[in-house]
Design a protein around this nucleic acid. Sequence first.
DNA 1: GCGACAG
DNA 2: ATCTTGTCGC
Length: 233
Amino acid sequence: MRVDLLHPWPESVAEAEAVQELLRPRVELTGPDRFATVAGLDVHYHGDDDLSAAVVVLDAATLSVVEQVVVHGKAAFPYVPGLFAFRELPALVEALERLTVTPDLLVCDGYGLAHPRGFGLACHVGVLTGLPALGVGKTPFVGAHEPPPPERGAWSPIELDGVVVGRALRTRDGVKPVYVSQGHRISLETATGQVLALTPRYRLPEPIRRADHLARHRDPAARAATTRSRATR
DNA sequence: GCGACAG
DNA sequence: ATCTTGTCGC
């Protein structure tokens, strides 16, 4: 698939924030509620700057892998809270461009609307691709919420300045919730339903788990070398 | 063995 | 965020 960056790459914090403000109005909060294929996106860091970005496309009904891509690159921006997306976006975009299929929904590791400027990674990736996108965070990052009841499927709203920007969602009985927010072209209700449907077994949705594993174990030779040197030590 | 969790 | 070690449990 083809992806346009839509803006020059920011050289400063101020420019990056301006890009977010510029693109935020393009976010759409409604969209389809059925998806045949779903892609998980994740990035794994090796040291300070080197990273691997993985995209794994699953059949939404069976959760079997349709296609997967991993690319290696460098972080494209310093780490600044709220500007996290700029570190990973170029590598993720390159991985998406190498796909031969176009997924119907992007499941991002991180936040979407639940973000200080309402434009987290899931919104950014969604706007660049034009595809429905949602974000799943592993830790509470912004906003306030009550802990949801302990049963799988239970949720509580995440509020920022009195506005609901996401949900703390229990995907397994008695296990820490995940934090779901809209990225692009999806309702919060649909995003919640999709996360549950994509999480039959573990805490995190299957597409994200697959992408995490792919990014983490990108190079079996390098991993074997690391294991050997640790054993020698 | 893999995943959650401690901290 | 990551790494490392151990325990519990499916």
